[in-house]
Design a protein around this nucleic acid. Structure first.
Lengths: 149, 149
DNA sequence: CACCATTGGTCAAATACATTGACCTTTATG
DNA sequence: CATAAAGGTCAATGTATTTGACCAATGGTG
């Protein structure tokens, strides 16, 4: 029983490892063509979902250090994918937004993941999707940064 | 409908992002104490599951380049966590094994993930686990390296 | 209103990491 | 036995991340 249970949990570890790999593979390819990395996708994604958010809010969503964000974010601005405007209320904070081009790239990247997940949910059916969401939600709630969200 | 569907898929993207983060958080902490990284854990994991495997087999499981594996693998050997012996059949190939200490660290790292997943599966119930496995298996099968396994 | 701690954000140097490309050794093939 | 291929290593380069110092605007407090 204990041996069997360990094998069951190990297979779960591998599913997460290979599953996550598959999940990021397509966007990574698209990004590589432009000499961008996964972190750029995440920036684009979160700015797209929450336009006008501050650098600090973005940090807490990404869970990276301020300094680690700075370089990739600057690149995105230099390439004209992201623009920042000073907030009216507090002129220290910068409100981040996507340009048209930034939106287009974000849409392309996310669409590749949507397509993959959508086809998998279709094949596996709604019960499997519900179970998957339940487990993943419980897992995500263990994220060390969940309090900052 | 399309808008709603997009939100549903976006939430799935975020579940994967935060879920994977939570999944790796504990081992990463343990590893950081020893100045090791995630790739070291993966090496230890796959060598533990398949003792005596070759460097090439390990590569295909990890999906990293030969050169990227070389440095962390050497470190593990220098620290006495991994030992390699030349194969009897083909003296070019090195058979990788864990030392006692290597096994102990691998067990510690994987146990932290087992514990997390186990408690989640318990809470969510067997149907959710089944659905989760079904979706994750479909996802993992899209892994670009699945043919090499 | 002057002081000072706090928050938001940036920059540069050091360090760690992966990539590239050359290289060595052993084995299989004609 | 020559040559190609497979298994593996090494060193140099380039690219990230981390560390730690720094600047600017704001909010309190006496």
């Amino acid at each position: 029983m204990s041996k069997k249970n360990e094998a069951r949990l190990n297979s779960a570890l591998e599913l997460l490892f290979y599953g996550y790999r598959a999940f990021t593979a397509l966007p990574d390819e698209i990004l590589a063509e432009r000499k961008l990395a996964r972190v750029h996708h995440r920036i684009l994604y979160f700015v797209a979902r929450d336009p006008g958010l501050s650098v600090n809010k973005l940090l807490s969503r990404l869970c990276v250090s301020k300094q680690a964000l700075n370089a990739p974010l600057r690149e995105l601005q230099e390439r004209g994918l992201v623009i920042s405007v000073a907030s009216e209320q507090d002129r220290r904070v910068k409100c981040l937004n996507l340009t048209e081009e930034g939106m287009a790239l974000e849409a392309q990247l996310s669409a590749s993941q949507h397509k993959l997940l959508s086809s998998i949910f279709n094949i596996c059916g709604p019960e499997a999707e519900t179970g998957w969401r339940m487990v993943m939600t419980a897992l995500a709630n263990n994220s060390p940064d969940k309090l900052q969200r």
